[in-house]
Design a protein around this nucleic acid. Structure first.
Lengths: 250, 250
DNA sequence: CGACGTGTTGATTCCTGTCAATACTCGTGG
DNA sequence: CCACGAGTATTGACAGGAATCAACACGTCG
């Protein structure tokens, strides 16, 4: 799932991704990317894999936090529960992204697998100990966190200042880019297996599912998008999509 | 400015805050809070102070980034410029908050002094070198960045899912809390010297200045707030304000 | 096949943005 | 000291667009 590809048969099974760190698909982008061979051996020794089916909760809100780790495959949604019972997706994690705060005893928001997901976990206390001994690890984690912060602030602009049309177009673009990066740049495919439902998209954009649906159909009738399957979306005219997203000129 | 206090005469001048690190008002909350005496001496040696008048730009967007540092006094707004010429304030920095990414050559967004501000800067390359030699510094920076990320995600919920009334109430509460923390807990005052104009508040909440104004007057006529001066706001009924902000029950 | 979750489309309402006029604050200079 | 003007805040009238409510289509699962 969640791969950009015309022939889904190429998609590896989750179990086939469980390998030694040297051969890991996210080796050079994840928190471990600066690790030396020695450090990698330590990490290799400390990690445990866990798979989640689409829709499964990875951690709940305000739960004891015992482990942290990387998304190896799949898409994970960070969701905050609201007083009125609704939810908002306040962040999306793609392969190589890091989940969890090693310096906290409890989680602040929940994490849900939006597609079939493989996580590479480290025991929290063990990871903390590694962080202290291995500056390269902390350095990379800091860098990733700073990137996440920048991305969150960029997204505030999308949610806060763009029109509904621009929001939806921006979202499709963002998903496409992240999935391409995760799956290793698919050249011509341009077909997205959308991991989020309309409602989840709406939660992320601060809209309603009806409005998201309407905007997507408008983008379809405009010839920019094409429905390539039940949950698959093809970007027909990427330039027009970028135009519709109203990307900053500066 | 920007102090919660009934007697503004108590407010220290900015210059009086320029002291040795040991006596610094943000000593125990800023990036230097974990520093040992030796490390503090190094930081003390590397720092330079700079003051900004209200409205002055501290750094522009996409400029070469030569220094990073802490807000000692004042409120700083991080603003993203939009294609249509507008702006959005995507973050607020209060005393002890950190400005700048040591691992970047250029800034991504601009920083503006929203009130008279004192910055404690470190030369970027020198700070980077210190980070590598002093794990306690990196550890604290990581912690602060993770906190910023959580705060940014919390704010996404405010901007995305709350009603206008709730947004404005949340904003007033947030400002009050941050100013109280910065100025060292004012017990009964509850008077806020608002550092942001209506338009800047609107930019932060993704609203218009008119809507912000209307909501503030509604909160005033409801007896929750009281206009205590040209730019001063008194929280008359904090419980009602929290209620109006629609804070999460969970 | 039927039921449920999800997606699409339609009709209506209400809120917020927009445009506009007026009041207020503060700094400048006569 | 007052007058003036620029910037900001407040209030009003109005229109547009998204939320809301509702009905129906689609796909998947048992």
């Amino acid at each position: 799932m969640t791969s950009i590809s015309n022939n889904p048969e190429n998609r590896p099974t989750l179990d086939s991704l469980i390998v030694r760190c040297e051969d890991c698909p996210i080796r050079h982008r994840a928190v471990c990317s600066y690790a030396s061979p020695i450090e990698l051996a330590e990490l290799n020794d400390a990690k445990t894999y866990k798979t989640y089916r689409k829709g499964e909760e990875i951690v709940g809100e305000c739960e004891p936090l015992t482990r942290v780790g990387s998304v190896v495959h799949g898409v994970v949604g960070l969701t905050a529960l609201l007083a009125d019972g609704g939810a908002q997706i306040i962040g999306l994690l793609f392969p190589s992204d890091f989940l969890g705060r090693h310096d906290r005893t409890h989680t602040h928001y929940s994490a849900v697998a939006l597609s079939d997901t493989l996580m590479c976990f480290f025991d929290k206390t063990r990871f903390t100990a590694l962080l202290e001994r291995r500056p390269s690890l902390m350095q990379r984690l800091l860098e990733m966190t700073l990137d996440d912060l920048d991305a969150a602030r960029e997204w505030q602009v999308v949610v806060g200042r763009k029109t509904t049309r621009q929001k939806v177009a921006s979202f499709v673009l963002m998903i496409a880019e992240r999935l391409e990066r995760a799956d290793g740049c698919d050249p011509q495919g341009q077909i997205i297996d959308m991991p989020l439902t309309r409602e989840e998209i709406a939660d992320h954009l601060a809209l309603t599912n009806e409005t998201v649906s309407r905007q997507l159909t408008q983008l379809r009738t405009a010839g920019i998008l094409h429905k390539a399957g039940p949950s698959a979306l093809q970007i027909v005219d990427r330039a027009a999509l970028i135009e519709a997203a109203g990307v900053r000129s500066i």
